[in-house]
Each structure stands twice: as C-alpha cells, then as structure tokens.
C-alpha cells in the first residue's frame, strides 16, 4: 500500500472520483427507473391488497357466522312448525272423522225415523180406508138385508156397535 501511495503521489487520478460519482448517480437513476419503482410499487400494492384481503376475510367470516346462526334458528323453528302442522292435521282429521261419523249416525237415525213414520202413516191410512170401506159395505149389506123400518139413527148405532166390536177384535 505504501508503494501504491508513493506511486499515486505523482499520479493521483482524481478524475476517478468524479467518474465513480457520475456513474453511480446514473446507475442509481437507471435502477430506479427500470427496476426499483415498479417493484416497490408492486410490493406496496401487494401489502395493501393483503391487508385488504385480510380485512375482507374477517368481515366475510363474521357474516358467514351470523348467517349460519340464522339458518340454525330457522331450522329449529321449522322443526317446531312441522310438529305443529302434523299435530294440527291430526287434530283436524280427528274432528272431521268424528263429524262424518256423527253425520252418518244422525242421517241414519233420520232415515229410520222417516221410515218408521211412513210405515205408521201407511197403516193409519190403510186403517181409515178400511174403516170407510167396511162402513159403506155394511151399510149396503144392512140396507139390502133389512130394507124395512129402520131409521137412520138406529142404523148408525147398530153400525157403531158393530165397528167397536170389530176394532176390539182387531186390537186383540
């Protein structure tokens, strides 16, 4: 080194310092323009994106949790609802069954009543017409058999007694 300094004493190349200064500045500018700026910009953009994505992920997760809770609640509710619907349907089926059965019962009862009353009426009608027929018939017979002194009153009482006898016989 001493040799170099002695050598340099008469040949100091101060231009070298200027040269390295200028070339270093030019190199720095070129590096800045071609590599530094785009890469650091991209690094900043990436770190920003990562923070944004993390924030977004947090937000989304809390939203998803909320949504899941809502869904769970809805599911629970729907289960209860289903049970309610089934029991309601059962109940209404039961009542319907009951009403149908009772309707049928009452209808049958009515039919029976009606049939009974019809029969009763028919019998009464038959009875009444028979009574008339018998009255007329016996009147004819009596007028033919005893067509002499028999006034209307005697005749009537005679017929009535005869009919009474007839009904007593019949009701026996």
């Amino acid at each position: 080194m001493a040799g170099l300094l002695v050598l340099g004493a008469n040949q100091v190349a101060l231009g070298d310092m200027l040269f390295i200064l200028i070339s270093f500045i030019i190199l720095a500018l070129l590096v800045k323009h071609f590599a530094w700026s785009p890469v650091t910009k991209m690094m900043d953009a990436r770190s920003e994106k990562i923070t944004g994505d993390l924030d977004y992920a947090d937000q989304e997760r809390s939203r998803a949790e909320k949504l899941a809770k809502e869904r769970e609640d809805a599911l629970k509710n729907s289960r209860a609802e289903a049970v309610e619907i089934v029991s309601k349907a059962k109940e209404s089926g039961e009542t319907q069954k009951k009403s149908i059965v009772s309707d049928a019962h009452s209808e049958a009862e009515e039919l029976r009543q009606r049939a009974k009353s019809d029969a009763e009426k028919a019998r009464e009608d038959a009875m009444a017409s028979a009574q008339n027929d018998i009255a007329n018939l016996s009147l004819e017979i009596a007028s033919k058999v005893i067509s002499k002194e028999l006034n209307a009153d005697d005749q009537k009482s005679l017929i009535d007694s005869y009919i009474k006898e007839l009904t007593v016989n019949e009701s026996k």
């Binding site: 040949q11 100091v12 190349a13 101060l14 231009g15 070298d16 200027l18 040269f19 390295i20 070339s23």
Partner: peptide, 12 residues
C-alpha cells in the same frame, strides 16, 4: 483531470 483507465473501466 487524470483518469485511471483500469478504475474507470472496472466501475463501468
């Protein structure tokens, strides 16, 4: 100014 060719070329 005096320039040392070796230095300057190497820097370049």
């Amino acid at each position: 100014l005096r320039f040392n060719v070796a230095n300057d070329l190497s820097v370049l």
